[in-house]
């Protein structure tokens, strides 16, 4: 169970609705993904628009997380958040303040400024942020209910470019950490969860996949697998092999007819003793008594 701003989620996948070829494709992906919260955006009204995304999302029974996509200043983002509050009757906002058209990377000072203003105005702010541990802490300090660092630029599908920073953010954050942006495929989502992220927000990787429905399932399983692996506690990395099969009782196929099996076995055991299995401490090594 994940909790953001006092609300419990059993799914750790947040789905972005951008990029789907149709509302039907979006609805199928939402269902298969198991998500409980999806992002939506606001744009000037288009009298020719076909179908209502709000109705489709209503039927899907998911929470709405409006975003401030396309805002390049704190002022525009704050205004857009207030529009979203009226349009969707929610005080949750995915805050984006973009610094550059080419990379769509967040503008850190403007992001912090907008976050502070929106928190003061009663919003539950989930900021899309750089993978910067210090900025993440500052966002938490001004009252954001989560931090959402990027893995790589929006829609790039480059995965997690700086897992080290993401781990630092997770270690220090007192609010949920949602990996936002950059996921290209299921393994990226799994890695984010293995690093300890509380959730993954994914849009393009699903919506622009050749088969969005199947990718929705793949990324759902990636998130679930990564989370389980995180909870299970992975083995430490080591430089050299560690046998998983005991060295005890290895049969002796040497051509010698004289000499004893025990000598052979004990030699073999001695050689591998330092890297012996974790089940027995070194002092309990079977070859121990033979040395004394």
């Amino acid at each position: 169970m994940m909790r953001i701003a006092g609300r419990d989620f059993s799914s750790r996948l947040i789905l972005g609705t951008g990029g789907f070829r149709s509302l039907e494709a979006m609805a199928r992906a939402i269902e298969v993904s198991g998500t409980e919260m999806v992002t939506v955006a606001l744009r000037r009204i288009d009298p020719a628009a076909q179908g209502s995304i709000v109705d489709v999302l209503d039927r899907a029974g998911v929470l709405l997380l409006p975003n401030t996509a396309g805002c390049f200043t704190a002022r525009d983002a704050v205004l857009t958040a207030r529009l979203a509050r009226e349009a969707f009757e929610t005080d949750w906002i995915k805050l984006e303040v973009i610094g550059d058209d080419r990379t769509l990377l967040p503008d850190a000072p403007a992001l912090l400024e907008a976050a502070e203003e929106l928190v003061d105005d009663g919003f539950k702010v989930l900021p899309y942020t750089n993978d910067d541990p210090i900025l993440a802490r500052r966002l938490e300090d001004v009252g954001c209910v989560a931090v959402m660092p990027l893995g790589s630029p929006i829609g790039s599908g480059m995965g997690l470019l700086n897992p080290y920073n993401l781990r630092l953010i997770r270690e220090r954050a007192g609010v949920p950490v949602v990996l936002d942006a950059g996921v290209g495929t299921a393994s990226d989502a799994a890695l984010a969860m293995e690093l300890g992220c509380d959730a993954v927000l994914c849009a393009s990787a699903i919506s622009r996949a050749e088969d969005p429905t199947t990718m929705a399932r793949a990324i759902r399983l990636g998130v679930e697998g990564g989370r389980l692996a995180y909870e299970a506690g992975r083995i430490p990395r080591r430089r050299y092999a560690e046998a998983s099969t005991t060295d005890d009782g290895v049969p002796d196929f040497s051509p010698q007819t004289e000499g004893t099996n025990s000598t052979q076995t004990s030699t073999a055991t001695d050689t591998s003793a330092p890297a012996s299995s974790t089940s027995a401490p070194p002092s309990a090594s079977p070859s121990g008594p033979a040395r004394t």
Binding site: A41, R43, R44, A49, A87
Partner: peptide
Amino acid sequence: LEVVQAVQGG
């Protein structure tokens, strides 16, 4: 006047 509506995004 700016009149906006929900669209897919994010």
